[in-house]
Every structure is written in structure tokens, then in C-alpha cells.
Amino acid sequence: MTYDLTFAKDVYQKAEMGHWIKMCMQCGVCAGSCPLRAHWQHSPRQLFQMVRAGKRDEVLKSSDMWMCTSCYNCIVRCPRELPITHIIHGLARYAETQGAADPKQPTRRFAVDVFWKNITATGRVGEAMLTMRLYFQDGIGAGIQRGLEMRDSALGMLKTRRLNPIPFRGKIKGYDGFTKMLAKAAELEQKLENKA
């Protein structure tokens, strides 16, 4: 077994909210509270312990942190007030910036390849396009099948005006400011990354 002792330090300094992991007392409340736990290989508690044990590859390549639905069950119960949801997202983002995240992980693909491109292109989410891209992520056959499966929901959403069928063209007002904000965020992230 090899321990990478620099990994914990990296996470504390470079992953968003990562320093909070130091405060975890390994009680297990988050793990017992997470409704998605059955689908995760490791619970949040285990991920935090793996960070401390220096298991760089197991953590960064894990699909676990991509599965968090931000339900906040863990946060409200954590006895030590760790912002678990945000730490989990911070770990996912850190894995992505390190190029370690599994490119085939479905949530990661949606987040990075579909959602991010969709929203940054115009400044707002184009629901119709977003849905199309998500459904056809795994090929035309799979896309049509998913579309049919979800037809009733889609029609329902159209009826209640929750889904705009007309693709959003052009850009939002103040698109320049929006891109500047993103650039600033990227700059801050880079600064964090360069920190020794």
C-alpha cells in the first residue's frame, strides 16, 4: 500500500471547502443520512478518511462525489457543522481540474460536456437543447428511447410552461459582464492551484 502524504494537504488548500475535512470526527452520521448511499461506493465519511489517508487515485477517480444530489440531509445533521455537500462538490471539481475524473461518469459528462457548454454559450440555460444533448449523449437510438420514456413528463412540463420549446438564440443582456465573472472565477481557481 502506498500513502501519498501530500494529497490531504493539496485537498485542504486547493479543493473548495477542502480544509473542513480536518474537522471530521468520523462519526458516520452523514453516511447514515445520505439517501444516495446505496449507490455510492464510499460514503462521505469514507471519502474524508481516504483523503486523510492519502488515497489520491481512489478518491479522485471515484464516481462517488459526482452522485451527490445536494439534498443537504448530511449538512443539517453533521455534529461538527462540516459543509459536506459543498466539500463533495469541491472534490468533484478538484478531480476535474486534475484531469483525474473518469470521463465516462454520466453526471460528470452531463455537468462538464453538456450543462457547462450550454450555459456559457449564451448566458442562460436553453432547456430544449440541454435536454436533447442529455438524451442523445449515448447515441441516437438511446436518445429516442429516452425521449419516448419521458414523453409524458415533457408534455406536462410544456403545458405548465416549465419547458421552453423554442431554443434561446442570441445572448443574455450583459453577456460581457457574465464572461468576465467566469474569467475571474477561473483566475481565482488557478491561483488556488498554484498555491504551494
Binding site: 458516520g28 453516511a31 448511499r37
Partner: peptide, 9 residues
């Protein structure tokens, strides 16, 4: 809950 020694629920 979760058994923190085994990771089992």
C-alpha cells in the same frame, strides 16, 4: 446508520 468500522449500513 453506518458501521464506521466496516462501512456497512
Amino acid at each position: 446508520g453506518e458501521n464506521t468500522l466496516t462501512g456497512e449500513r
